[in-house]
Amino acid sequence: MERETQMLRGLFGEAPRHNEGLLRSTFEAMERTVLQLQRLTNADNDPKHIWRKYEIWARGLITSLDELEQSRYAAERFHSRVTKTYQDEMTPEEETDYRRHLYFYKNGLIRVFSVLDKLGTLLNGVLELNTGKVKQRFSYFTVLRQMRYTGTEPELAEKLGAIKESYKDPMSRLRKQRNTEIHYMNSEMQDDLWQRHQALDGRVKLEDIGHNIADLDQALEMVCKTLLASFQHIARLLRAKS
């Protein structure tokens, strides 16, 4: 994955990311699964294109995780340049960095749920859950509920459920922000207006962007643990089919 990690770090004149720890383990598990799917395709020429489809989805998830990590990193780097409490205290340069932080932060929080939903699509296919019969447009969390309801792969369902519960608070806060960002027009302007109504002097206080970054860090960790557990389990299922 080193070849794909220069894009946003290059904005800061930095070297590409070197994957370590949980992030590295997650990428490696995903890449091993891609190789397994390739071997299954080569073994029987994949007449129904099932393995090839899952390979494409797995590759897409690798790219999506990389993009999520880069968005989080850029949001954090621009956040580190913002030192003021009120918007009217910022220099033009600092306000530009603040706007850049917001851009990458919002991009990151949207990608958190995008990655999970893409994983839900892959799990739904590999595990033959038929979640689309229950809900046509389903999320990762719908797939997880379907696993529990049907008793499919209970070991994996229990593990994914435990991960979900352990990150419930930050994920709930991010989900509310994601929904506001996607479904409400001019959410930032409405927030500024609300703040002016609350403040006697009409000044706009910046939100706690440090707390936002902490939530995004927790979400990235949750996504990595979820992907790692899922791809390790998928790999075991594919080995049984080899």
Results as ranks from 00 to 15, higher is better:
17 R>A: 14
185 M>W: 14
17 R>M: 11
132 G>H: 07
88 D>K: 12
132 G>I: 08
80 S>D: 13
234 I>P: 07
183 H>Y: 09
108 G>W: 03
161 G>Y: 03
12 F>Y: 00
205 K>E: 08
152 T>C: 12
194 W>Y: 14
177 Q>A: 15
175 R>F: 06
221 E>S: 13
178 R>Y: 09
170 P>I: 12
175 R>D: 06
208 D>R: 13
128 E>F: 07
156 L>G: 10
51 W>A: 06
114 S>K: 04
33 T>F: 03
181 E>W: 05
2 E>Y: 15
179 N>Y: 04
70 Q>C: 07
182 I>G: 11
126 V>K: 09
238 L>V: 06
40 L>T: 05
5 T>Y: 10
62 I>T: 12
163 I>R: 06
103 Y>V: 09
56 I>C: 00
156 L>I: 08
214 A>L: 14
106 K>F: 08
88 D>A: 12
103 Y>P: 03
152 T>Q: 10
108 G>V: 02
68 L>T: 02
142 T>W: 05
59 R>V: 05
16 P>E: 07
17 R>V: 07
157 A>W: 11
204 V>M: 04
71 S>V: 04
12 F>N: 12
163 I>V: 07
79 H>T: 09
182 I>P: 01
177 Q>L: 15
68 L>K: 06
127 L>N: 08
208 D>V: 09
104 F>P: 07
137 R>A: 07
68 L>P: 09
161 G>L: 07
162 A>T: 10
135 K>D: 01
211 H>S: 13
171 M>T: 01
126 V>T: 01
128 E>A: 09
102 L>V: 15
34 V>M: 13
239 R>F: 06
237 L>H: 00
173 R>G: 02
75 A>P: 05
131 T>C: 02
204 V>Y: 04
61 L>I: 14
112 V>F: 11
15 A>K: 13
234 I>A: 08
104 F>C: 01
170 P>A: 08
201 D>K: 11
188 E>H: 00
41 T>M: 14
213 I>V: 11
194 W>I: 14
187 S>W: 04
71 S>D: 00
116 L>N: 03
148 R>S: 06
9 R>N: 03
190 Q>R: 08
169 D>Y: 03
242 S>K: 10
6 Q>C: 04
52 R>D: 00
232 Q>I: 11
181 E>Q: 13
198 Q>A: 15
106 K>Y: 10
208 D>I: 10
79 H>Y: 13
51 W>C: 00
146 Q>S: 03
38 Q>G: 13
225 K>Y: 02
142 T>K: 12
31 E>Q: 15
48 K>C: 09
14 E>P: 07
157 A>K: 04
159 K>M: 10
179 N>F: 11
